[in-house]
Design a protein around this nucleic acid. Structure first.
Length: 565
RNA sequence: UGGGGCGUCGUCAAGCGGUAAGACACAGGAUUUUGAUUCCUGCAUUCGGAGGUUCGAAUCCUCCCGCCCCAGCCA
């Protein structure tokens, strides 16, 4: 246990944010406290990019003995929905993080936020503006030209107060007025050109219902929410760098309980997939995939259904590190983290995806024999199970080749192989239909090799997985592969859906799996020996109709060698 | 051509003036009843480029080049 902790600490990578926090701590900043927050907007499903932020924020809180708040940034009822709140909560929980007793909502601060806005107005730092959206855009200026001041900018404070209250009371229609911070229309930073901080939206909110018809904007809400919660380090992605001056301005102008430090880091990008909400939505809505939890999607719900473990994702997020450099990470790295975890923990089992019938000619007709198989060769403590050997067996079609090259360590006419935990068998005859398709193999077995050992020390090159007709049950298997063929699907075509991999899902109907899989647990991942890791599908699988998802393949140097030829 | 960021191995990434960690990938080899796992071994004389400061520079200075973000009453 102690060793584990040491190992974990050693594996915990440093990054520039932790360095800043460590320095703050040694300087006695924030009274030695560290409080972070994960602030999703409940307008979509979480994806693996969010996992990076979750692991960062919760991880730092854990490491520095602080805390991390889960806070919904729910200031735009037009886009948000309770179902997203529910799914986000369940995803964060699944990832294995703890936010304590309270779930925070920016909407819980609406009253306070309103008071802060009034304070700003009273100080002459905010004004009610009647410019239309279009006018506002014109007045804002451009990247290279300064903006123009709104004609309402010098409206008397009393009038601003009155108008703002009437906005709140619902006296005006959407779009007629907004509340703006009074900063600097000439700023080279467009975010400082008198940004809107409140808008009228006569819309019911998932949590505050019809109490409000004005809602605060992100910039106004976020910093103040952070401060109200005593957040010390407010971590966000790079695109908010330009907002930091506004974040700081607001907290300086208002009597806020503290002034959190905003630090930006680069968001995660993965190759062969898309991460933006809009694009994920398009995939779902146009039925390119089967819902938000399609196992090919990088959503938390999707990768979870695919069979990814939270442990693997946490490890991945740790391994990729945190920096300000924009990068595109190889999914291979993710898959590797998964294999790492699964190799340690997945029980081994045998299944044949594309069965080829094998008849053992020197095996008595109705004889059935129970053999012992290990559930994990490197971990005897995981126990053993019984498997059944009989006259009719199935092996993988790929494991037989009629005219096999020398390096093919599998079954071929006249060759002998080991059936894992079974017997050595030798191929005697190949039965075909009139078109030449292989129907069945006639083999013999060596009774002396029970369990797979040859008493005479005879070596055999190949070991095949197999299943017997009596010891197996039918199942369906979904073979998942990467959703896109292009490393960067959004770059290589004007329409990213053109890069969808037509073979991202291959459905196999006639597989046979070891009988023990009849009671396969939900979310338990098994290794189908020599094939990969599989789990029963959360949605499609049932007792009488087994459906497995391929989570990830095993590394396959044989396939790689063949491919490069 | 305004402002803000970023450039260290194929991909991530440490490094913070004392002579380029680590992971994955890749290439060899060993062990193996999974062509898996595991285990060795190799893999940046050089840090986007050019100058400069220094006994010494990926780290400091100057110029240049490349990439990303910002003109929602979205977050």
């Amino acid at each position: 246990m102690e060793d584990d902790n040491i190992k974990e600490d050693a594996n915990r990578k440093n990054n520039f944010i932790k360095n800043i926090i460590t320095e703050d701590l040694t300087n006695g900043k924030n009274n030695g406290k560290v409080i972070t927050r994960f602030p999703p907007e409940p307008n979509g499903f979480l994806h693996i990019g969010h996992a990076k932020s979750i692991c960062l924020n919760f991880g730092i809180a854990e490491e520095f003995k602080g805390k991390c708040n889960l806070r919904f940034d729910d200031t735009n009822p037009a886009k948000e929905d309770q179902k997203y709140i529910d799914s986000i909560i369940s995803d964060v929980k699944w990832l294995g993080f703890n936010w304590g007793e309270t779930i925070y909502y920016a909407s819980d601060y609406f009253d306070k936020l309103y008071e802060f806005a009034v304070e700003l107005i009273k100080q002459g730092k905010a004004f009610v503006c009647s410019l239309t959206g279009e006018q506002m855009r014109e007045y804002r200026g451009t990247l290279t030209e300064p903006g123009k001041e709104s004609p309402d900018r010098n409206r008397p404070i009393s009038e601003n107060l009155d108008l703002f209250e009437r906005m709140k009371n619902g006296e005006f229609e959407d779009g007629t007025y907004v509340l703006r911070a009074k900063i600097d229309m000439g700023s080279p930073n467009i975010n400082m050109r008198d940004p809107v901080i409140y808008r009228i939206k006569k819309m019911s909110h998932p949590r505050t219902a019809d109490k409000w018809c004005i809602y605060p904007m992100y910039d106004f809400t976020h910093g103040i929410s952070d401060a109200l919660e005593g957040v010390t380090h407010s971590l966000c992605t790079l695109e908010f760098q330009d907002h930091r001056p506004l974040y700081d301005w607001l907290l300086d102008e208002v009597t806020s309980p503290c002034h959190p430090q905003q630090i930006e880091f680069a968001r995660m990008n993965l190759n062969y997939t898309v991460m933006s909400k809009r694009k994920l939505q398009k995939l779902v809505e146009n039925n390119y995939v089967d819902g938000w939890d399609d196992p090919r999607l990088p959503t938390i719900a999707g990768i979870r259904r695919r069979g990814y473990t939270a442990e693997a994702i946490r490890n991945f997020c740790n391994i990729i590190g945190v920096s300000k450099k924009e990068s595109r990470i190889d999914v291979g790295l993710l898959e590797n983290c998964l294999r790492d975890d699964l190799n340690d923990n997945a029980p081994r089992v045998m299944a044949v995806l594309r069965p080829l019938k094998v008849t053992i000619e020197n095996w008595e007709q109705n004889r059935i024999e129970e053999l012992e198989a290990q559930n994990h060769p490197q971990k005897p403590e995981m126990g053993i199970r019984k498997i059944i050997f009989s006259k009719t067996l199935y092996i993988e079609q790929d494991d037989f080749m009629e005219n096999a090259p020398k390096k093919f360590f599998r079954l071929a006419p006249g060759r002998e192989v080991r059936l894992r935990y079974g017997y050595f068998i030798t191929c005697k005859e190949v039965l075909k239909d009139k078109d030449g398709n292989i129907l069945e193999l006639i083999c013999t077995y060596d009774p002396a090799t029970r369990g797979g050992d040859a008493p005479d020390g005879r070596k055999v090159k190949g070991t095949l997985h197999w299943v017997s007709s009596e010891g197996s049950i039918p199942a369906k298997v979904n073979l998942y592969d990467r959703l896109f063929m292009a490393e960067d699907p959004e770059a290589e075509s004007d329409d990213f859906t053109k890069n969808i991999n037509p073979e991202s899902l291959v459905k196999l109907q006639n597989c046979r799996v070891e009988k023990s899989l009849k009671d396969a647990e939900q979310e338990r991942v098994y290794q189908f020996e020599r094939l990969g890791y599989f789990c029963s599908d959360l949605k499609e699988s049932s007792k009488g109709d087994l459906v497995f998802n391929r989570t990830v393949t095993l590394k396959d140097t044989w396939a790689k060698v063949n491919q490069t030829k």
